[in-house]
Design a protein around this nucleic acid. Structure first.
Lengths: 159, 159
DNA sequence: GTACTTTTACTCGGATACCGTCTGTCCGAGTAATTATGG
DNA sequence: CCATAATTACTCGGACAGACGGTATCCGAGTAAAAGTAC
């Protein structure tokens, strides 16, 4: 029951893109440089975010990535789903059926409240947006560093 | 972000033990027989439940397992923790530090509400007890089958 | 019939093999801007 | 100076290697009850 590290990485990648001025585009390398993560793997994750409709990509020279929607409209939940998919935490393995010798349609008792728990979990993730995250960052003790990052990005981005 | 199947298996194993009369002891093989799971692996899970203090074991001939507490006092959460441990869904990998060049004590912004989400999830699991689960089973359309299981268990158990 | 030994039926816990998934790398292909080239 | 070709700087997507963790098996050791044995 461990969240994939790719989710975390994706969140910060999106956060970086949220620091850019609208319409600006940033190459994947610039992102992995800041995150100090492997460029090839970051690219992979970025491509997935594209496929899932969270970010937009521009191929070719002067190309790169940018947010598809406004930071206020991107939740942590969105990013989680993009990276991990819609599969539920718990999927009945069939033990229930085996134990009770259920052949037909049944309702595995665990599913109902496992789902309830998962919904409760997701509800919290849905509350948090990238915009909030960025705002908190900009008001934290790291605000100087955030400005620095914006500067560095400004050198690499294309309007 | 998939729950281990061992948690599910453990839940049903405990549920079976909850069907026994108090003080009765049931050998591990009888449990795996009903669950139609591999005996060796089930034994392993049962041993873990013992180690975590959820069930009690009696070695030697006429030995076996029985619940440590009453079914009303065993929650699904307890079993989950026994099988998966206390590790949080999300543990900061250090990207946050790398990005913000934080050296000292920091508070990774994600941790706070990832924890909040996890707490919400666990709260639901804590509400559900084995007693409830068993009661629901006994009142479901599987009640006959449940009685049958009790019978079969009666042949194998030792008071 | 009692004391002792053997067998039987369990749990215990570690070692180990297997296998799927996630992380991470690589490469050829596509695309667009920039630069170089030729007339 | 303009049109075209070559280069450059990106994304795209799949293939693949490696590491790790969970599933599953096995085995020798410990323990206690039952059965067998000797006197």
């Amino acid at each position: 029951m461990q969240m994939k590290t790719s989710v975390e990485q994706a969140i910060y990648a999106v956060a970086i893109l949220a620091l850019l001025p609208e319409k600006a585009v940033l190459p994947g390398d610039a992102i992995s440089e800041q995150l100090k993560t492997s460029p090839s793997y970051s690219q992979k994750l970025l491509r997935r975010l594209v496929r899932e409709g969270l970010i937009h990509s521009v191929p070719g020279a002067k190309g790169g990535f940018k947010l598809m929607r406004k930071p206020e409209e991107i939740t942590i939940y969105d990013i989680y789903i993009a990276m991990e998919g819609h599969q539920a935490f718990y999927t009945p393995s069939g033990i229930f059926d085996d134990l009770l010798e259920a052949e037909e349609d049944y309702d595995c008792l665990l599913v109902s409240f496992m789902d309830e728990a998962e919904v409760a979990w997701k509800a919290v993730l849905k509350k948090q947006t990238i915009a909030k995250l960025v705002t908190e960052l900009e008001q934290s003790k790291f605000q100087e560093r955030v400005q620095k990052i914006k500067q560095i990005m400004a050198e690499r981005m294309v309007m």
